[in-house]
Design a protein around this nucleic acid. Structure first.
Lengths: 202, 202, 202, 202
DNA sequence: GATGAATGAGCTTTCATTCAT
DNA sequence: TATGAATGAAAGCTCATTCAT
């Protein structure tokens, strides 16, 4: 039976939980707006509107637009990681690595905006100061995703697991970009088919 | 012997030549600024400053920022095409295709900003109206570059020349992007080595 | 006795009241500037300066210059309507209509810039899209002013109340414009005298 | 028989004639553009384009936009004067004045843009310095037009010829403006009918 | 914490006009 | 005189961010 007292600890837990919920709502809103109009096209006002709050209400949760962008990216990478994790665990051992790469490819095929979003880091302006602090956790997350595939290759006894992983990721990334920029149409080829070929050749 | 008369035709030639020079100067200035601060970060003011003229002086030559961007992109693609053309022509027949792919890869390795620049088409917002008109000639140019490699594969008797070209381009693109976004460092692998491996496996 | 609580409703009332005050200040500032330098000569910057705020501060209240202009016009038409209303109500029945027309004439005689302002609708370019939306409420207001005079003519048993009203308004408008453009000086005649004559002849 | 010599006088005549032709072409072009997009909407570039010459080529003939505008106005007033002159001369004496007023009304009914153009003087910005110099010859021309009607009234033995003329012009102007601003539609009345009534009542 | 008004610098673009050719 | 490139100031408007309430 509880004491009926609200302990300080309980209150803090509640506060933190609420914070996380509100942060999550903002990240979702930002993701929606970023996907719709791009990183530079998204104004804090429009993100706030999407989230159903005022502009000023964003700043207690995020220092600014860039931090919001980092949070969005983190969220998409976590979704990606979860899919890759499923893929490499469920499959029979020697096919796990391929399934992992396929999961990586499929995720971005289904969520093309997520890839575009991820590349702002690359194509966009580089106010390097902030971006570095922002980049570290993203790289960590990505490293974890790569590791999932890499260790599958290791378990499968592959001679160059690192190279195979890197090469597969590169092929996926390249195909997806060519596809989404409409360059692959120049070949009248399908990204999925070409990626399947790549995997078979491994 | 000349008559000493300035003919109308001569004057027009001079005018056109001057126009082209000035256009070229503006394209160079824009390229510099775009590379330094990105497409959205570049202001017409800063491009004008780089070119040593006033903002208003840009508009007789380019309708706006997007047209300037298209001109920059065209110029880099033409440089790329020229390098690929050299590669596929000089090499002995059965190695020409590989040399073409290598030239493609090397160009962007040496000019990393050019790749970033090309991907704004992808990452940015797409005010599709203008972008379509802008995209067509760029696609044509790119198609010509792809063709150079493709026909080398054809001459070499390759069974799937289109697929080989697409796959090679994708691998190059993917590796370069992973490299330039610092993702490849996570593998402690070198883009050039990985690309060499890909070519060898063809 | 009040509870000392600030209710949500009370706060909202206050917010709305403040909004209206600020809107009003902006309309006044805009009217001042429009009268001084004309519609096209007035810059948002100068209006903001007159209102004692920054340019950006205007936009939460008015979508742009045209909306600001519409608000100014509405405000002058409301002032005009109020004067005409007084005139037609106070006078003895059979003179009410004439008093209404006289009030119309006098208003613009005393506020010549208001007439000029109203005619931008006529002389300027018509980016009809917005202007239509802007025009409707203005026409409604004007129609109400006309109605005041018209029904006075009806009450007075006039045979052609609509024609009399239209004719009187046209005479007033024409005289005021000729006066204000300095064309009436060519006749060495006074607008007021001529209008008095017109009324007498009714 | 001519001497075959080109005399200095003849050459000068030719030069002046050419000048006038070119001036006339520019005035026509300006009128077209002013009517299409308004005074402020018309750029010197667009006027030059309409006239088939370069921007710089306007300035030897006109000091600037305002002078060009004055020339356009002069040209329309001359056309108006010519029509009024025809009207007052052809008609039988006692109807001449009314015909003159009718001609004034009809001219602007057929050329609504000309009225709008004339009112920029009124509604527009007033850089009074230049406008005064510009205004004098226009007033002179207008005075001549008024005189045509006025003397017809005199010849007809009218007791107040000046007042009748002024009143008729005012009625015409007022009706035309109410018509063209769409205000007359509020009365569901036709400008022509109302003006006919006014003339009959004279 | 939330609000939303305010800032003020920033943007792209247009303009009348000048002037070397 | 004609050209048309260039100027440079201005325009309307938007933005991320701050801050009094």
């Amino acid at each position: 039976m509880t004491s009926g007292q609200v302990t300080a600890a309980a209150r803090e837990r509640r506060t933190i939980a609420l914070r996380d919920v509100r942060r999550g709502l903002l990240v979702d809103a930002a993701k929606t707006v970023f996907k719709a109009v791009g990183l530079e096209g998204a104004s804090m006002r429009s993100i706030a509107a999407e989230a159903g709050c005022s502009t000023g209400a964003i700043y207690p949760y995020f220092q600014g637009k860039e931090e919001l962008y980092a949070a969005v990216l983190t969220s998409t990478l976590e979704a990606l990681k979860s899919e890759v994790m499923d893929a490499v665990s469920i499959s029979p051992p020697h096919e796990a690595a391929q399934a992992g790469l396929q999961a990586f490819f499929d995720y971005y095929l289904k969520n093309p905006d997520d890839l575009a979003l991820g590349l702002y880091l690359f194509g966009g302006v580089h106010p390097t100061g902030l971006s570095t602090k922002l980049n570290r956790p993203l790289n960590k997350l990505l490293r974890e995703i790569f590791d999932l595939v890499e260790s599958a290759f290791v378990r499968a006894g592959e001679t160059d697991p690192v190279g195979q992983t890197a090469s597969g990721m590169a092929q996926a990334t390249g195909l997806l970009i060519l596809e989404q920029t409409g360059r692959l149409r120049l070949f009248k080829r399908d990204a999925s088919d070409l990626f399947a070929k790549h995997l078979k050749a491994l």
